[in-house]
Design a protein around this nucleic acid. Structure first.
Length: 496
RNA sequence: GGCCCGUUCGUCUAUCGGUUAGGACGUUAGGUUUUCAUCCUAGAAAGAGGGGUUCGACUCCCCUACGGGCUACCA
């Protein structure tokens, strides 16, 4: 049987990295088994629908290199892939459950139920609409056929009728067998009064109809798995396999990773930007594989010491055996390290081919772009680091006072004049460097002092790439000007 | 509260009854480098607690603690 898995997000905003990791594990599982990766949009809650989310999800997946085989954009033989477009399908299927007694109509108002809930809460109990009390309420179990028909003219919901005193046995690939007593379950709503299905119902129907072989989703769904199993059973359908992924927790403190954590600590929790305020991994200068590789490591490992993977390598190496049971904390430092490793594995040309790189390099002359990347590549953790590393090209002022102090009383002008003279005379970078080195040796000027003075002139501070390479990238003209500027600055200081 | 899931260095993790409990991020100390970064070397750092089972338990079982999730006409 062909392996088919699905990623089924709700379009309620940008895709969180927790969701993205679920997508990734679905994708990897599919690739590993040469199966089909499906995107299904679960837009059954119209109140929470956010414009642009679906597009965001699709773009995020594409950016990661995980374009779905089937989905709203790419089509497929099992569509439509938006649940809002499958209303008729749900309407037809709910009739089957109504007919065989697995589901029933319920007419209680939301107010009535809220009241019950509050009263139960007062007594320290949890209100459940189920076998204990369903006969107390207004539903097709307690009403006559005639009364029911009449009540159907107004709002109604359809509930799953869960039999008491039974044990549901479900199996999760990474957790094993889970047993739950039906007495602890309630008669979940399958169809809402707006005529749309709840997640639970739509999910089961679609997974069956789309021939999903393995349901891979977040751990938050584990508690409702027994109920889902009951729906499969009510239909007489075979259940797919299930795999519930551990959650991603905050870096520090309690609870799930949230957007607020990212805002507070300055790291992204979304792949792409959302609106003007929220930056994504892409905008922060991450490579898609940098982010994806880190996400894969968060909750999975191959059992070896390998940590840096290409997408293809992940596809090959992935196995459900290596999926973790416990939840993991998000660690931005490690994410940056993974990205750095990926970046260093790329050639200058590959780095240049990225749109984010071109964006960052746009203020500089095009014919210098490649040599600029070459200059700073080794120093990059993210693409965005290019900006900071190249800041000296635009401006080097003010000079770092500490360096001025250090160099000031050590004949900097003699050194600068010598650099100038040599730079004018020699056109070849290597030769220039060689000449300067031998000059410093001959005249008892320490190499350190020479370099620092030179660096002060060209960069204005003590950090940065190799100073001769910097000189070469800046060009003779600019370099000479900067040396003259520093000489003037020192003269001016002397007068004072 | 009830139900479900989980728990190895600060963090991500290896270990599938017998190991000096390994690796990575971070951190500390050295080294390389004109500087910073990179890179290299070394160090500190862990089996939640208590009971079993066993010749032997991080590994299997139970309890407790802690963490997480669910408990909506949200997903």
């Amino acid at each position: 049987m062909n392996t088919r898995v699905r990623f089924a997000p709700s379009p309620t905003g940008p895709l969180h990295i927790g969701g993205l990791r679920t997508a990734l594990f679905n994708y990897l599982y599919a690739k590993k088994k040469a199966g089909t990766f499906i995107l299904r949009i679960e837009d059954t809650d119209q109140n929470r629908y956010v414009e642009g989310s679906e597009n965001y999800i699709q773009e995020a997946l594409e950016w990661c290199g995980m374009d779905p085989d089937e989905g709203p954009k790419n089509g497929g033989a099992f569509g439509p892939y938006r649940q809002s477009e499958r209303k008729d399908i749900y309407a037809k299927h709910i009739q089957d459950l109504l007919r065989n007694g697995a589901a029933y109509y319920a007419f209680d108002s939301a107010e009535r139920l809220n009241k019950e809930r509050k009263e139960a809460e007062k007594k320290g109990e949890t209100f459940k609409y189920g076998h204990q009390n369903r006969l107390r309420f207004k539903n097709s179990l307690t009403l006559t056929e005639e009364e029911t028909a009449k009540a159907l003219e107004d709002d109604f919901v359809i509930r799953l009728k869960i039999e008491s005193d039974q044990t549901v046995i479900v199996e999760d690939i990474i957790r094993g067998v889970v047993r739950v007593k039906t007495d602890t379950l309630d008669d979940k709503i399958l169809m809402k009064s707006d005529g749309l299905p709840t997640y639970h119902f739509a999910n089961v129907v679609d997974d069956h109809l789309m021939k999903i072989t393995c349901v891979i989703r977040g751990e938050e769904w584990l508690p409702s798995l027994p109920m889902h199993k009951l729906i499969y059973t009510a239909f007489g359908w075979e259940t797919p396999e299930f795999m519930h992924l551990p959650l991603i927790l905050k870096t520090v403190g309690k609870g799930k990773l949230s957007k607020r954590d990212g805002d507070r600590d300055g790291y992204p929790v979304f792949p792409l930007k959302w609106g003007k305020e929220t930056q994504g991994f892409k905008e922060m200068g991450f490579l898609p594989i940098g982010m994806v590789n880190y996400l894969a490591l968060l909750g999975w490992n191959e059992g070896t010491e390998k940590e840096v993977y290409s997408l293809k390598e992940l596809e090959k190496a992935f196995s459900t055996k290596g999926v973790q049971k416990g939840s993991a904390r998000f660690d931005y430092e490690k994410a940056k390290w993974v990205n750095q490793q990926q970046l260093q594995n790329m050639s200058i040309e590959e780095i240049y081919s990225l749109s984010r790189t071109k964006e960052i390099l746009s203020p500089f002359e095009k014919n210098k772009h490649l040599s600029l990347i070459k200059l700073v590549k080794k120093r990059l953790n993210t693409l965005n680091d290019i900006k900071g590393e190249l800041a000296f090209i635009k401006s080097i002022h003010p000079y770092d006072k500490k360096v001025i102090d250090k160099v000031e009383d050590k004949n900097p002008k003699t050194i600068l004049e010598q650099i100038k003279k040599t730079l004018i005379k020699y056109d070849e970078d290597d030769l220039f460097k060689e000449q300067m080195m031998s000059w410093s040796k001959k005249n008892g000027v320490s190499i350190g002092l020479l370099m620092q003075t030179f660096r002060l002139a060209l960069v204005g501070k003590l950090t940065g790439p190799d100073i001769f390479e910097v000189c070469s990238v800046l060009g003779k003209e600019v370099s000479l000007k900067r040396i003259n500027d520093l000489i003037e600055h020192l003269n001016f200081k002397q007068i004072l």
